[in-house]
């Protein structure tokens, strides 16, 4: 069968098109494109069916597992596919690893090394117990996230644009350094012993709950990442749609109760607003998908992210 590959502006991407056998899948087409243009490996390609000009409809994205025949009308022997270059891609584990590596290295730097000399503080640092516990708490948190990335999480998308690496690293690394600067400061003022214990205790429970949430989420997807959306259930998911975010937010609250810095609370507010946006989108998607019609289950009544508010 003959495949004509055009860009979104209608220009032909591969001159003369591609000739594939009749039972070829979309994955075969992606491989064929990759062979012709070495730059465009499969995850960089976005293949869609052309939409009639002026139509406001979203184009159909080709699923790599399906056969090309499934997208042809009738028994035509040629098909036109729209090609878009998504730009350089990185795998999700790579993206997450570099995001979390920054805070994991930067934070101990402020604790162990005499960095405050460069900010004009010549005095000898006296380290408060809360600063040592905070170091362990912080490092445990990011170590846990890296381990989860490699051994627990299953990703619905294989790759992410390379530019996200720079954006996300800027976010995590800057906030990591900003918080580390204040918690390890020579002029740091600790909170009471009781407040510190409540904060770290509560935070630790939330981290463990967060870990359990991630295991539940992992079991919703089959090992190859397919299976589509499922209704999350069990443990805290019976109350909240995004219990994984809830526990993440509350564990940062615990850290902030124990360390009490404005920097930490600023991070908490920013992180909460980002996760709330994601949670609202996911909640909406699940409610739309599981509408209780035509035999589909109905999505149960649940909080979105922050019970008892949202």
């Amino acid at each position: 069968m003959k495949v004509t590959l055009v860009s979104r502006s209608g220009r032909e991407v591969i001159k003369g098109g591609l000739e594939l056998h009749d039972s070829a899948t979309v994955a075969d087409l992606q491989e064929a494109i990759h062979k012709r243009t070495k730059k465009f490996y499969p995850s960089r390609q976005r293949l869609t069916l052309p939409v009639p000009p002026g139509s406001k409809e979203r184009p159909v994205v080709l699923n790599y597992k399906k056969g090309l025949k499934d997208y042809c009308d009738g028994n035509q022997n040629n098909i036109t596919v729209v090609f878009k270059d998504l730009g350089p891609q990185v795998s999700y584990p790579t993206l997450f690893f570099f995001e979390y590596l920054g805070p994991l290295i930067l934070y101990p730097t402020f604790y162990y090394f005499p960095v405050y000399q460069f900010f004009g503080y010549k005095v000898e640092r006296v380290i408060h117990p809360v600063q040592t516990y905070a170091l362990y708490y912080w490092c445990f948190h990011y170590f846990k996230r890296i381990m989860e990335t490699f051994f627990i999480h299953r990703f619905s998308h294989a790759t992410s644009p390379l530019s996200n690496v720079f954006r996300n690293c800027a976010y995590y690394w800057t906030f990591g350094a900003y918080i580390a600067y204040y918690v390890n400061h020579p002029l740091y003022t600790p909170v009471s012993d009781l407040q510190m214990k409540i904060g770290f205790g509560f935070g630790l429970i939330c981290q463990l709950a967060n870990f359990y949430c991630h295991i539940i989420l992992k079991n919703l997807r089959s090992p190859d990442g397919s299976g589509g959306y499922q209704i999350p259930s069990g443990f805290l998911f019976n109350i909240v749609t995004c219990a994984n975010y809830t526990t993440e937010i509350y564990q940062w609250l615990g850290f902030n109760i124990a360390t009490q810095t404005v920097a930490g609370y600023v991070f908490l507010v920013v992180a909460t607003s980002i996760m709330t946006n994601w949670a609202l989108a996911k909640h909406r998607r699940l409610k739309k998908l599981f509408d209780g019609k035509e035999g589909r289950p109905k999505y149960p009544r649940r909080w979105v992210i922050l019970p008892p508010f949202l």
Partner: peptide, 9 residues
């Protein structure tokens, strides 16, 4: 300036 209760500067 530090020091203060909210560890802010």
């Amino acid at each position: 300036r530090m020091p203060n209760k909210w560890n802010f500067s």
